Amino acid sequence: MDKPKTEEDWWQLDYEIKQLFDGAPIDEADLFAGRAAEITRMLDASLARSKHVVLFGERGVGKTSLSNIFWKRFGKSLASFVVGRVQANPSQTFDSLWRDALEEIEASAASQGRQELFPGKSSDIDEITPASLRRLFARANANAIPVIIIDEYDKLIDDNAKELTANLIKELYDYSVNVTIILVGVAEDIGKLVEDHESLNRALVHIPLGRMSDTELREIITKRTERTAIKFHKDAIWTVVTISMGLPYFTQTLSKFAALNAAGQSRLAHASYSPLRTLHKNASSQPARLSLMLREPLDVSRRTT
């Protein structure tokens, strides 16, 4: 890409950097890096009849991004994914959680202009129970691949809601209903996320998500720099990856401030990026402390040339 020439060009570059390295969960498949094995396992579970997924790991490893994009890697076929995503919260009951989920999957089918993929509606059910949901999901079109993603499932505190969700998964499995439920949450092991998980072992695919490899973190940077005029020297990439400690959020945040600093000084490369070196020298192994260090040091004001 051409080097910016005007002030407007530089502001456009700033905008591109902030959009590409925004640190938010990814929903664009082309920007997603790594996790090939986990994507394959999630696709396999979704395509299998009545298999369900528990995706768990520490905060910041990219669970939401993975659940956002795995199904977008599915090649063209006669079948179509219909995906409803909800975020659990402490105030939800089983009824409110699953009414939200039904509304989202209905909206997904409508957004594709193919309401026939999921003809059921939450308004069709007077009382939300595992049995009533199972009957509704059974009405999905044969060419649909229905998926319900419940993110931040660890925030659900209603024990009855957790128990009934476990019962729903078991009932969907026992009746071989073609729908996949994906529970996503922060947990060290599945037992801290799913009630009575041992009785659900045949129905569940356990996918623990660890920290990313250095190669995957480098891919996060290169996939984004391919779309903009900013370039990273190898030593800057190495420093960002090392400080990130396997956490993609830190890779994006460090890269954003480094790129904004470079753009602000009207240069398109980091020959020797001293603020990053300072962070590398002083960074704690605790992500929370590192997060505080990222607030200001790399964000410098624009310099005109």
Rank of each mutant, 00 (worst) to 15 (best):
residue 241 V to F: 03
residue 120 G to Q: 08
residue 120 G to Y: 11
residue 305 T to W: 10
residue 111 S to D: 04
residue 8 E to W: 08
residue 42 M to C: 12
residue 124 D to L: 04
residue 90 P to D: 10
residue 196 D to E: 13
residue 217 L to Q: 14
residue 303 R to I: 13
residue 284 S to G: 03
residue 59 R to T: 15
residue 57 G to R: 04
residue 299 D to H: 14
residue 140 A to D: 01
residue 219 E to F: 05
residue 12 Q to Y: 07
residue 127 E to C: 03
residue 206 H to E: 14
residue 98 W to I: 00
residue 71 W to G: 07
residue 249 Y to F: 12
residue 38 E to F: 10
residue 105 I to C: 03
residue 239 T to L: 07
residue 239 T to A: 15
residue 25 P to R: 11
residue 151 D to Y: 11
residue 104 E to T: 08
residue 270 H to M: 13
residue 68 N to A: 02
residue 104 E to Y: 09
residue 52 H to M: 09
residue 98 W to G: 02
residue 46 S to N: 10
residue 90 P to K: 09
residue 232 F to R: 03
residue 218 R to E: 08
residue 302 R to K: 15
residue 212 M to K: 09
residue 177 V to Q: 08
residue 254 L to R: 00
residue 244 S to P: 01
residue 97 L to S: 00
residue 269 A to S: 05
residue 21 F to D: 07
residue 94 F to K: 01
residue 203 A to V: 01
residue 170 K to D: 00
residue 115 Q to N: 12
residue 147 V to K: 02
residue 227 R to V: 01
residue 221 I to V: 12
residue 225 T to P: 02
residue 8 E to G: 12
residue 215 T to Y: 06
residue 168 L to R: 03
residue 44 D to T: 14
residue 7 E to D: 15
residue 6 T to V: 02
residue 103 E to M: 06
residue 35 R to F: 09
residue 76 K to Q: 14
residue 58 E to T: 04
residue 61 V to F: 05
residue 268 L to T: 01
residue 47 L to G: 01
residue 237 I to R: 09
residue 32 F to W: 15
residue 220 I to T: 04
residue 93 T to K: 10
residue 284 S to I: 07
residue 214 D to P: 04
residue 28 E to C: 03
residue 23 G to V: 06
residue 164 L to K: 15
residue 63 K to P: 14
residue 66 L to Q: 06
residue 39 I to G: 01
residue 60 G to L: 06
residue 136 L to E: 08
residue 274 S to Q: 12
residue 33 A to S: 14
residue 180 T to E: 06
residue 170 K to T: 07
residue 19 Q to H: 07
residue 51 K to T: 12
residue 58 E to S: 06
residue 281 K to I: 07
residue 40 T to F: 11
residue 150 I to Q: 13
residue 111 S to H: 02
residue 124 D to C: 01
residue 11 W to M: 10
residue 184 V to Y: 08
residue 110 A to C: 05
residue 262 A to R: 01
residue 27 D to Y: 14
residue 26 I to N: 14
residue 55 L to F: 07
residue 135 R to H: 07
residue 12 Q to V: 13
residue 136 L to V: 06
residue 129 T to P: 00
